[in-house]
């Protein structure tokens, strides 16, 4: 029982577990652990790579993208537990969380760059080989869009979502998605046309 569990622990460990909250976590996950891996762990292994790719397209930085995905999974676990019984669509939840976190990261980065000049971008040799000049031009032009425009572009042309799905993911109206996409394409045409 709970009391025996408390008495089994030394006082300092019990106090530390109370402060860190690990007691409540073990209570939450007790029981179903023996029946199989928690749903959130299966989802983590299944969706981690695609979510990191999605985040990389937003923030263009692998380390930041990994942090974003890890934080989104941690938030999902903290809010809904290990078995995700209260989440209707975990995939949509994760995509929306990654998009919001990436947008926040872009805002923070833009704020920081307002005070510190950005360092010259070092393109890895392998990336340069694979990407090619035209792809690099497109990605550079994409980086000059606003965070919202970039979200719409990535969800539409990488994730293949419809306007309605994008609207639900970003919690905006469908009309906003349409106008944002048109505006972003116009900007991209201008940027890429200037370089041709």
């Amino acid at each position: 029982m709970h009391v025996t569990g408390v008495l089994r622990l030394p006082p300092w460990r019990w106090l530390r577990s109370v402060v860190s909250g690990s007691r409540t976590r073990s209570c939450d996950t007790a029981g179903p652990v023996d029946t199989g891996p928690p749903a959130i762990n299966e989802l983590y292994h299944a969706r981690r790579l695609s979510l990191v790719r999605l985040a990389v397209l937003m923030v263009d930085d692998l380390a930041t993208a990994e942090d974003i995905v890890q934080d989104v999974f941690a938030a999902l676990y903290r809010k809904h537990g290990a078995w995700l019984r209260t989440v209707a669509d975990p995939d949509a939840y994760l995509t929306s969380g990654v998009m919001n976190a990436a947008r926040s990261a872009l805002r923070r980065r833009r704020t920081a760059r307002a005070y510190v000049p950005p360092p010259p971008r070092v393109v890895p040799a392998a990336e340069e080989e694979v990407l090619g000049r035209e792809d690099r031009e497109v990605l550079d032009a994409l980086a000059r869009l606003t965070a919202r425009q970039r979200q719409v572009m990535v969800l539409r042309y990488w994730s293949g979502l419809s306007e309605q799905e994008i609207a639900e993911t970003l919690k905006v109206s469908r009309g906003t998605v349409k106008s944002t996409a048109n505006r972003a394409l116009t900007i991209l045409r201008g940027l890429l046309g200037e370089r041709r």
Binding site: R53, L62, D135, Y157, W158
Partner: peptide, 9 residues
Amino acid sequence: ALATRAMQV
């Protein structure tokens, strides 16, 4: 371009 960049990861 997006597909190429994503597949790098």
